[in-house]
Computed example of a mutant assay.
Amino acid sequence: MKWTFSFLTGCTLMIVLSLTSCTQLAVFEKDTSIPQYQWKSSFEVKGSFDVTDSAAAYDSYLVLRHTDAYKYNNIWLDLAIQPPGDTMHHQKIDMPLGTDANGWLGTGMNDIWELRQLHFKGAHFKKPGRYNFIITQIMRDDPLPGIMSAGFRLEKQ
Rank of each mutant, 00 (worst) to 15 (best):
K2C: 11
W3H: 11
T4L: 11
G10V: 02
G10T: 12
C11W: 13
C11I: 14
T12N: 02
I15W: 10
S18H: 07
T20K: 10
S21D: 04
C22I: 09
A26S: 13
V27A: 12
E29H: 04
K30D: 11
T32K: 07
P35D: 10
W39H: 05
K40C: 06
S42Q: 11
S42V: 06
F43N: 03
F49D: 09
V51F: 09
A55M: 10
V63I: 12
R65E: 12
Y70F: 14
Y72A: 08
N74G: 04
L79K: 03
Q82M: 14
P84E: 07
P84Q: 02
P84V: 04
T87I: 02
M88C: 03
H89Q: 13
Q91A: 08
I93H: 08
I93R: 02
M95S: 07
T99L: 13
T99K: 05
A101C: 00
G103V: 07
W104K: 09
W104G: 06
L105C: 00
G106C: 04
T107G: 05
G108D: 07
M109E: 14
D111G: 10
E114I: 11
E114K: 14
L115C: 07
R116S: 11
R116Q: 11
H119S: 07
G122F: 05
K126Y: 08
K126A: 15
K127Q: 15
F133R: 06
I134G: 03
T136A: 05
Q137I: 00
I138L: 06
L144V: 01
I147L: 05
I147M: 00
M148F: 05
G151V: 06
G151A: 07
R153K: 15
